[in-house]
Each structure stands twice: as structure tokens, then as C-alpha cells.
Design a protein around this nucleic acid. Structure first.
Lengths: 221, 221
DNA sequence: ATATAACCGTACCATCTAGTACGCTTATCC
DNA sequence: GGATAAGCGTACTAGATGGTACGGTTATAT
């Protein structure tokens, strides 16, 4: 009856965009699939179907399966630390700052997406070492740097005493991260990631750190 | 000329054993190959060639590729901690004991075989969760337990003060392990694993631990 | 000694999947 | 509005690989 029914038709005759926009749509879908299934278990066919795209389009944009994977992981690695670029403020008590940092970190890397990304990278590093370097630089290295910088500042203004900030940073981050990461990667189901447990863990890590590098008052509570 | 030349022939006409012995030979070869190349990049054909075996023999003994992989990883996970079953002795100063434990642990897990095993398991856990459980129980869990037991004993005889030994154990092990393990998995080539660095790292980790959980003399050096 | 079953090598099958080709449709640019 | 290139879907190729079959050989047990 109406003359231009196709545009306002309720049936989802999705207008599919062209060029860069389509490329990004596909990359987003691919990211989800790769993270969910890993590189090997993912086929180009699956990605194409999920994105309602054709394999030809995939190959036109990304050249190969590895090219697509590479781009996806790379962009995600960069995005990971997109938020926390800034310096850590020296305002507030070290205990508070360390606690916040630790808890945020822990919450972040216990979440399934982070674990999947990490798993995918660990798996593919032998074949694509570049991937590991990018991820390390964007993720762990950046965090360590940022934290070490804070330690320097805090030491300078007398709130902490850290002669070797890089090392201290590694110890603190490690004491928080290690056990949860291993569990998350190796035994995801039985990992009990209650927020309560994480809080307790972080608090104790902070206490240990401050026992060594703290500078203030009541030594040895 | 001689009547039984084939047995003493210099040409390696390797007498190939039958039954269980052959099975173990093959498993040993498979272990090497799997650790070196990972599950996906390993083919049954390669294993067969490396072991001078026939695929049929592989399948008779192990049923499937996954079966072979499973058996190999399982036995290796068990073997990992085969040495250090015993309790940690309470003799000696905590600083010494923690230092030794830490350094041994660190040396152990930066070695390429350990990293390969860990990588293989991380990769395959989504498909074979059982693998992860076995590894965790045989490796990390056992170590944590052992260490926590030591902390209890040391606390009991007044050499340390650890009200929450499990948590303290996690913090200590984590502070030692995390950074090196990540680097080893993610950026193997640029990982600078000098023994000197590891020593320094461990020493500082021990100092931090003792600052919190130590009990003796010269508080706050 | 001889029977038997483990073993080897080669060939083979079925499947899966990266990557290509092609004809038709449709968004986009002028 | 019409040309053009991006995109879709289907079909196809080629290579790799898990797993099987089979005939000949050799260790091993009786």
C-alpha cells in the first residue's frame, strides 16, 4: 500500500553501513568471539555469521584470520588502560590509596573478560610475540610505572619510605594479583571471588606493604 | 659370515620394546613435543615420527590425541612436586628459610619447561577443566599448604607471628611469583632473568614479609 | 620352534577450515 | 538519478589433520 515501505518496515532489514563503520562493527563482534572461544576454536565463518557479514568482507578488511585477531587484541590491550592514564594523586593516606588501587585492580582482573584476554595472549605469544609485548607495555608495565611514580612522590613528601620504588611496586602488585590470577586461569569454576575475600586480601597486602615501607606513627600495631 | 648378525649389527636396528615400556617411551616423547609446541600445533604424526612409532600404536595406547595430552600433562603435574613432599623444617632463621624457599621457587618457575607447562594448561583449561584442577592441586595448592603449615609452626614456636597463615602465604608467594611469571609468559625474550635480580627481588620480598609478620629483635632496621 | 600379538609404514578416509570466486543487491557519492 | 564499489550469500578449492585399515615384520611367551 504505502509507497516506501522498506525504510519504515518493522521487519529488521538492517541497513548495513559501509567502509570504516562496518569494519569496526566486525572488529567488535570478532573481539567478543575471540575472547569467548579463543583463537583456535574460532572460525572466520562463525565471526561472519555473528556479524551478519560475509567472509569476503572480513578478508577485505583484515586480510587474514591472524590479522583480525591481532588487530582485535591490540586495540583491546590499548583500551584496557584507556581510563587510568593520569598520575596517582598523593592526596589522602597511603593506606587509602593503596587499598583503592589494589581493590580496583583485583576486581578488574578477576572479571571474565580480563581473564579471557590474558588467556588468549598467553596462548598466542609463541606464534605472535609482538602481541605479548604490546599487552605487557599497555597493561602491566604501565600500571607498574604509574604506581612506582606514586611511590616516588609519596616518598618525596614523607608519606612513605621507598628507596627502590620499582621493586616495591612489583612486590605490592604481585602480592595482590598472583593468587587470584592463577586461580582464575586454571580453575575458574571453583574460584571463590567474593568481594569480601578480595577486600580482606587487599587490606592485608596493604598492611604488609606499609609495615615495610610506611613511615608514620604507630609502628607495629 | 657370523650366524647372528642382526643382534650385534652396528647399524641402529633399535630393538623396540612392547607393551608398557613402549607406552612410556611414547609418553615421554609426547611430553617433550607437547610442551615445546603446544596442543594445537602438535600433530599425532609428529609425535609418531619423533618416537619412531606408528600412529596406530599411539591410538592403541592412548585412544585419542586428547587422551595422550591429558595423560602427559597429568603425569607431569604430579611429578612437578614429587621432590618437595616433606614439611618445611622450622630449624634456622625465618629469613633464611623464606629466602631459600623463594629463590628456589623463582628459579623453578622461570625455567622454560615450567612456563611451557603452565602455558599449555592455561590454554587448554576451557576445554579440559579437569586439567586445571589437577595442576592447581598438585602445584600451587600444595605449595601454599606446605608454606602455611610452616607459618603455623613458626608462629607456635615464637619465630613468627602469623594469625592468618593462609593469607600470609598467598601474599608472600604472590609477591615473589607474579611479575616473573607474567613476564615469562607474555614477553619471554625481553625477560631479564638474571640470578642477581632474582636474589634481590626475593630478599626484598622476605624483608617486607618479616616487617609485617616477623617477631624478633631489631624492628625497623 | 611356533603362535600370537604388538609394532611399523603406508595408504586411506572424513572432516574441518582458511581463503577465493562470483553473481546479485544496496548503500553512498556525485 | 545513475554509476560504482562495498557488501551479502553461496559455492568452491586446497591443505591439514584426527583417526582407521591393512599387510608385512619382530618381539615375546609358552
Amino acid at each position: 500500500m504505502s509507497m516506501t515501505p522498506q525504510n519504515c518496515a518493522e521487519k529488521a532489514v538492517r541497513r548495513v553501513p559501509r567502509g570504516e563503520k562496518r569494519r569496526e562493527e566486525i572488529a567488535a563482534v570478532a573481539e567478543r568471539v575471540f575472547l569467548h572461544r579463543g583463537f583456535t576454536e574460532t572460525t572466520m565463518q562463525i565471526i561472519a555469521e555473528e556479524a551478519s557479514a560475509s567472509k569476503e568482507t572480513l578478508y577485505r578488511h583484515f586480510g587474514s584470520k591472524e590479522g583480525l585477531f591481532f588487530e582485535v587484541i591490540r586495540s583491546r590491550s590499548v583500551r584496557i588502560t584507556g581510563g587510568n592514564e593520569g598520575e596517582l594523586s598523593v592526596e589522602g593516606s597511603p593506606r587509602e590509596i593503596l587499598g583503592d588501587l589494589g581493590l580496583n585492580l583485583l576486581r578488574f582482573l578477576v572479571n571474565p573478560d580480563s581473564l579471557s584476554l590474558y588467556r588468549a595472549i598467553v596462548t598466542e605469544v609463541p606464534r605472535e610475540p609482538e602481541l605479548g609485548r604490546i599487552f605487557y607495555a599497555q597493561g602491566p608495565a604501565r600500571l607498574l610505572n604509574q604506581f612506582a611514580n606514586y611511590l616516588v612522590s609519596a616518598t618525596r613528601c614523607g608519606k612513605l619510605f621507598c628507596p627502590e620504588p620499582e621493586l616495591a611496586a612489583k612486590l605490592f602488585i604481585g602480592s595482590i594479583v598472583a593468587n587470584y590470577q592463577i586461580l582464575g586461569l586454571i580453575a575458574p569454576e571453583e574460584a571463590a571471588f567474593s568481594d569480601q575475600k578480595m577486600r580482606t586480601h587487599v587490606n592485608e597486602a596493604v598492611s604488609m606493604f606499609l609495615a615495610r615501607y610506611g613511615v608514620c606513627s604507630a609502628k607495629r600495631s
